[in-house]
């Protein structure tokens, strides 16, 4: 398991595109929004929580299809499925690697992009906390979508169609927590919901993903 995690991280660093790409996409997205809605600080401040969360979600989506597709192409997935690791564990580890490569950098750099969007001061800790609680769910759900669409031609587009509706609850609670933080209200309730979704998804989705992978390996 540890070996798999190290391999995936090493591949992400060496093959390039892993760490940098999602972050650059996030930056571009947050740069484009003011062009679209106008530079008034008030407007930006009001929509900043939503933009930051939607941006994180889309950046996460960008690299999802790589979770299993590369391993499927070169045959590693067949070999991993016959290895002594449980496939559920493989899925969980690969989702963890995806989170470390895309989710974690987003959590760390989101406050900087919050500055660009005039995010109100009190919201920053909640932005970081809500992203830290929510992005693991994005990776795990994304791994499910990737497992379902692995080996399909035109899988990437389908992947977004399958995964984005699954992101709705996470997005709602995540952005709501930041919004409440921004206006000085108590963001406790949405944060608790967010944590509950993430924990439930972490516990259950690897089984669904592994089942889908087994079907696709047949």
């Amino acid at each position: 398991m540890k070996a798999l995690l190290w391999r995936d991280l090493r591949l992400a660093v060496r093959a390039g595109g892993g760490f940098g790409l999602a972050l650059a996409f996030f930056l571009i997205l947050c740069t484009l929004v003011p062009f679209g809605v106008g530079p008034e600080g008030g407007t930006l401040a009001r929509i900043a929580p939503g933009i930051l969360w939607v941006g994180a979600l889309l950046s996460c989506l960008l690299s999802l299809d790589r979770i299993f597709a590369l391993d499927h192409e070169d045959g590693s997935l067949d070999l991993l499925a016959t290895a002594p690791l449980p496939l559920e564990g493989v899925v969980a580890i690969k989702a963890l690697a995806h989170w470390l490569v895309t989710g974690l950098p987003l959590v760390i750099f989101a406050p900087v992009l919050g500055l660009l969007l005039h995010l109100p001061g009190p919201a920053y800790p909640w932005l970081v906390l809500s992203l830290a609680l929510g992005t693991p769910a994005l990776s795990v759900l994304g791994a499910f979508g990737a497992a379902v669409t692995v080996g399909l031609r035109r899988g990437g587009l389908l992947l977004s169609l399958l995964v984005l509706p699954l992101y709705v609850p996470t997005l709602i609670f995540g952005a709501e927590a930041v919004r409440r933080g921004a206006i000085g209200a108590d963001p406790g309730t949405p944060l608790l919901f967010l944590a509950a979704i993430t924990l439930a998804v972490l516990a259950l989705m690897p089984f669904a993903s592994a089942a889908a992978l087994r079907v696709n390996l047949r």
Binding site: K2, A3, L4, R7, R10, L11, R14, A15, D71, E73, D74, G75, S76, D78, L79, L80, A83, P84, L85
Partner: peptide, 20 residues
Amino acid sequence: ADGLKPALSVAENLGFWSAV
């Protein structure tokens, strides 16, 4: 298919499967 990762060296590829 051999399940090799082009970005890893020969020893690293083999070492991964050995660890697994």
